[in-house]
């Protein structure tokens, strides 16, 4: 049973919004224990799958360096869209996701979750070219989504504490030190 089927099935079984423990139980039953699952707040399943598929390529998991999947960034995006965007912005965001999903199908010939990493890389590289040529005043949806993913990534516990130079209590201010390629200093500021 693949992930999407599992969600559909779980939703059918419960007849209610999906709860995480229940979903986990369903998934562990089909050896998908590494997959995170959550009750979405606003995005539909296809939209979540689109985010999961591309975020896995944008911020991949590597040994010793967590990726989008490990950090549950799709769930994070879902929560931010639900709580932090206005209704109008939400509508634009979900439309943007639907369009992105459609573009992936059109260029790769299959849906985002089945397109495969190679096709997604090709698609995203083209998307990057377009998006970063656009003026920041008219931020393309792709770049908006990516900013949210990157924000979730950079403020996650795992990334802050293992990929950046995180100090909860620095204790001192060194005003002028050599920069020799070290990771960026971060603290508890938001």
């Amino acid at each position: 049973m693949d992930r999407r089927d599992a969600i559909k099935r779980a939703t059918l079984l419960s007849g209610l919004a999906l709860t995480a423990p229940f979903a986990t139980a369903v998934l562990s039953g089909c050896q998908a224990t590494e997959k995170r699952i959550f009750a979405s707040l606003i995005l539909n399943e296809d939209q979540i799958v689109t985010i999961e598929s591309i975020s896995r390529v944008i911020l991949p998991s590597e040994p010793g360096s967590p990726g989008a999947e490990d950090l549950g960034l799709a769930e994070f995006v879902d929560r931010m869209v639900k709580d932090c965007l206005s209704q109008q912005e939400q509508a634009a965001f979900t439309k943007g996701l639907d369009n992105l999903s459609q573009e992936i199908s059109d260029t790769s010939g299959s849906s985002a979750d089945k397109a495969g990493d190679k096709a997604l890389v090709t698609f995203l590289e083209q998307k990057e070219k377009e998006a970063y040529a656009a003026p920041a005043s008219d931020l393309p949806f792709y770049r908006q989504l990516k900013q949210l993913l990157v924000f979730g990534y950079l403020t996650s516990e795992q990334v802050m504490t293992t990929q950046l130079d995180y100090h909860a209590i620095p204790g001192r201010y060194d005003s002028c030190i050599p920069y020799e390629g070290q990771n960026a200093y971060v603290d508890n500021n938001v």
Binding site: V121, L124, E128, L148, V150, F151, L164
Partner: peptide, 19 residues
Amino acid sequence: GPPGNTDQPGIGQDLKRSL
């Protein structure tokens, strides 16, 4: 540095290193 610079071009490992 991060998280002030979320608007970074690139994908994959290159993006992660630049962040």
